[in-house]
Amino acid sequence: MRQPVGVILAGGQATRMGGGDKGLLFLGGQTLLRRVIDRLEPQVAGLALNANGDPARFAPFGLPVLADPIDGFAGPLAGVLAGMDWAAAQGAETLVTAAADTPFFPCDLVPQLLLNGESMTHPLVLAATPDVKRGRARHPTFGLWPVALREDLRAALNDGLRKVVQWSERHGGREAFFPQEEAFFNINRPEDLTLAEAML
């Protein structure tokens, strides 16, 4: 399988953070987005950013900015579809997504997703970690997505589907298990940013 391209999902509304772009918040002297770019870029064949609104605010990062192709903040799957459309234009067969508010994700994210997608006709793999309460937790903004299913995803979104896991399970999606519980710690609230400073 050829190396996938990557898209950073930054299309959310950050309501628990008081609005704005979480990816532009600073952590240890760098923006969250810069930290995510630095982790993902070496693992993929090309990189873009999914975000809505004026793309000029992301100009310093030098990435293509992809708006959701579905109106009304349809959630992460809309960002995945934006990424799939862009990936198709790049001639890529697969896409890897990562969230802009999750700065510590594994540096072997892409190899592990690819490994778990081996033998699948349409590789679709979501990241998972241990979880004290549920046994394991899925992280649906971190996944490997087959570009071949983009029209299926578009139709599902237009029919009102919004849950990532619901769509992935339709297509026999798998999990890539990462043993560190905090691997996908994400910053939703101001106190999470304080925690992240301590984790640095």
Results as ranks from 00 to 15, higher is better:
residue 1 M to V: 11
residue 2 R to I: 04
residue 3 Q to L: 13
residue 7 V to D: 05
residue 8 I to L: 06
residue 10 A to Q: 07
residue 12 G to S: 04
residue 13 Q to I: 01
residue 14 A to W: 15
residue 16 R to C: 03
residue 16 R to A: 14
residue 16 R to M: 10
residue 17 M to N: 13
residue 17 M to C: 05
residue 20 G to I: 09
residue 23 G to N: 08
residue 24 L to I: 03
residue 26 F to Q: 09
residue 26 F to E: 14
residue 27 L to M: 05
residue 30 Q to P: 02
residue 32 L to M: 10
residue 32 L to Q: 02
residue 38 D to S: 09
residue 38 D to P: 04
residue 40 L to M: 11
residue 48 A to E: 03
residue 49 L to I: 08
residue 50 N to L: 02
residue 52 N to H: 09
residue 54 D to M: 07
residue 55 P to R: 03
residue 57 R to L: 12
residue 60 P to K: 04
residue 62 G to D: 01
residue 62 G to P: 07
residue 64 P to A: 10
residue 66 L to W: 01
residue 68 D to N: 09
residue 68 D to W: 15
residue 74 A to W: 03
residue 77 L to S: 05
residue 78 A to N: 05
residue 78 A to T: 06
residue 84 M to N: 01
residue 90 Q to L: 13
residue 91 G to L: 07
residue 92 A to R: 03
residue 95 L to S: 06
residue 95 L to G: 08
residue 96 V to P: 03
residue 96 V to D: 02
residue 96 V to L: 11
residue 97 T to N: 08
residue 97 T to P: 02
residue 100 A to G: 14
residue 104 F to V: 07
residue 106 P to T: 05
residue 107 C to N: 10
residue 112 Q to T: 10
residue 114 L to E: 09
residue 117 G to H: 02
residue 126 L to P: 02
residue 127 A to F: 12
residue 128 A to V: 02
residue 130 P to W: 00
residue 131 D to T: 05
residue 133 K to N: 15
residue 134 R to K: 11
residue 134 R to I: 08
residue 135 G to I: 10
residue 138 R to K: 14
residue 140 P to I: 04
residue 140 P to A: 14
residue 141 T to V: 10
residue 142 F to H: 14
residue 143 G to Y: 08
residue 143 G to R: 01
residue 149 L to T: 02
residue 152 D to Q: 15
residue 153 L to C: 07
residue 156 A to P: 08
residue 156 A to E: 15
residue 158 N to S: 12
residue 160 G to V: 06
residue 161 L to S: 13
residue 163 K to W: 12
residue 166 Q to H: 06
residue 166 Q to R: 06
residue 169 E to Q: 12
residue 169 E to D: 14
residue 171 H to Q: 08
residue 172 G to Q: 10
residue 176 A to F: 04
residue 178 F to M: 12
residue 186 N to Y: 11
residue 188 N to M: 04
residue 188 N to P: 00
residue 190 P to Q: 09
residue 191 E to F: 10
residue 192 D to W: 01
residue 192 D to V: 04
residue 198 A to D: 15
